[in-house]
Amino acid sequence: MKTRPEPDEYLPGIERYVNLVPEGHLVDILQSQHDQTRLLLKDLSEEQANYRYAEGKWTLKTVVGHISDVERLWSYRIFRIARGDARELPGYDRDIFAESAPFEGMSMTEILTDFTAVRQSTLTLIANLPEEAFLRVGAFSGHPLSARAAAFLIAGHETHHMNVIKANYL
């Protein structure tokens, strides 16, 4: 899939993520992101992985775990919408997810293994959807949401957090 979602396919807050996705085929972009993220983070020490750049901020482990958690949620949304289930999809509270997640007790290697598993699942889903499935629209937070927009959000969300990691953690 190469075509970008139109602004009427997603709620306004998603635009900042969609705009971060470069031009190109989305499967290739997601695979390249995965490879770059793993390369950047695979050799970090546990001290680096447990770093917080400010009081009240998440550790690097939690940020990477959050990327995977969000991808799981949005892949599920893609799946539901692409299969024709247009019912309203619920939101979530990222802070509750982060507080309840096991990331602090996991090694960075374990977190990256999970990241890879989640991304492979997403890639398999997206790579095998027919083009018309990407154009199907459901609802999220009172706004239309296409499967295509949800897929772009995954890529843009990772880019956003990798920019934060490069600027504040490494």
Score class of each variant (00 low, 15 high):
35 D>H: 06
33 Q>T: 08
72 R>T: 12
86 A>T: 08
36 Q>P: 04
70 V>P: 12
74 W>N: 14
36 Q>I: 02
89 L>R: 07
62 T>R: 02
45 S>L: 12
96 I>H: 10
60 L>Q: 02
49 A>C: 03
86 A>W: 09
42 K>C: 00
80 R>H: 07
97 F>D: 05
74 W>P: 14
83 R>T: 13
53 Y>M: 06
50 N>Q: 15
33 Q>P: 06
41 L>Y: 08
77 R>N: 09
64 V>A: 05
50 N>E: 07
32 S>L: 10
42 K>A: 01
71 E>D: 06
74 W>I: 13
65 G>E: 10
84 G>A: 07
63 V>N: 09
41 L>W: 04
61 K>G: 04
86 A>Y: 11
96 I>Y: 05
68 S>T: 15
55 E>M: 05
64 V>D: 03
91 G>W: 08
49 A>H: 09
89 L>K: 01
76 Y>W: 07
56 G>E: 04
98 A>T: 09
47 E>T: 15
32 S>N: 13
93 D>Q: 08
60 L>M: 11
36 Q>T: 15
93 D>N: 11
35 D>P: 03
77 R>H: 07
75 S>A: 15
90 P>R: 00
76 Y>P: 08
39 L>Q: 14
86 A>L: 11
43 D>Q: 14
41 L>K: 03
51 Y>I: 01
41 L>G: 00
40 L>I: 06
71 E>G: 04
61 K>S: 01
36 Q>G: 06
